Amino acid sequence: MPFVGGHPVLDFVNTVAWRLDPARTADRVQGPQEWVHWAAATGMLTADRAEALLRAETADSTTEAATEALVGLRATLSSVLDALVDDEKPPAGAWEALRQALVLARADATLPPGFPLQWQPGTDRLDDLRHALALRTEDLLSDDRLSRIRRCAGPGCGWFFLDRSRSGTRRWCSSTDCGNRDRAKRHYTRTRQHG
């Protein structure tokens, strides 16, 4: 799975491909084991912690609830980020759900005895991944990166990314994917008009 967001929270939301095209929408990460593998691939879990978590997680109601909560957080963040890039106020329900996720994350995290002063979620349960993502969301939406969050201009794509281009004009999740599609479409249109 490609990581084009430039931040784990954006890549988390991007686990739904073709988010804005209902006919093509695909959930790329399903089930607790896939979420653990995803967290390890993004660097949110070390390989050792991921392996320990995979051994510890079983298909019980706690794991199912944790998986549903992760998917719920992803939907919440999708709504909040859509509002952000559209320069709109986030939907009240999504904003409240994000607030609640932060309250739960802090309640379950620890504050280290030294610097940097930063909440530290655990890494022993699948719920800890949700808490870590909530805390990383707070970090992302609280600094100057906020103004650099973009949504891919590719029709139906909907993936988010941090625009780190010097000019601040990046349009696509990937120039080799949605960018190529756009260039091919424009080329086809031009040749049809002149042909």
Rank of each mutant, 00 (worst) to 15 (best):
residue 109 A to M: 01
residue 65 A to P: 05
residue 92 A to M: 06
residue 83 A to C: 06
residue 114 G to F: 07
residue 100 Q to K: 13
residue 109 A to R: 02
residue 74 R to K: 11
residue 71 V to W: 10
residue 101 A to H: 02
residue 98 L to A: 10
residue 87 D to V: 12
residue 101 A to K: 05
residue 112 P to G: 08
residue 112 P to C: 04
residue 110 T to Y: 09
residue 69 A to M: 07
residue 84 L to M: 08
residue 81 L to S: 04
residue 103 V to I: 13
residue 92 A to S: 13
residue 90 P to N: 00
residue 56 A to R: 15
residue 59 A to Q: 14
residue 100 Q to N: 12
residue 115 F to G: 08
residue 84 L to Y: 04
residue 77 L to T: 01
residue 67 T to P: 06
residue 73 L to P: 03
residue 80 V to A: 02
residue 57 E to N: 11
residue 100 Q to I: 10
residue 56 A to F: 14
residue 58 T to E: 14
residue 87 D to A: 15
residue 71 V to P: 00
residue 102 L to N: 07
residue 75 A to K: 15
residue 56 A to V: 09
residue 93 G to P: 00
residue 56 A to E: 15
residue 113 P to M: 07
residue 108 D to S: 13
residue 98 L to F: 03
residue 71 V to D: 15
residue 79 S to A: 14
residue 97 A to Y: 07
residue 58 T to P: 04
residue 63 T to I: 11
residue 111 L to C: 04
residue 89 K to Q: 13
residue 79 S to M: 07
residue 79 S to L: 12
residue 68 E to I: 10
residue 97 A to G: 02
residue 109 A to S: 14
residue 84 L to V: 06
residue 113 P to F: 04
residue 107 A to L: 10
residue 112 P to A: 05
residue 68 E to S: 11
residue 59 A to I: 07
residue 112 P to S: 09
residue 61 S to G: 05
residue 82 D to K: 06
residue 71 V to Y: 08
residue 70 L to S: 10
residue 62 T to W: 08
residue 113 P to H: 09
residue 108 D to P: 00
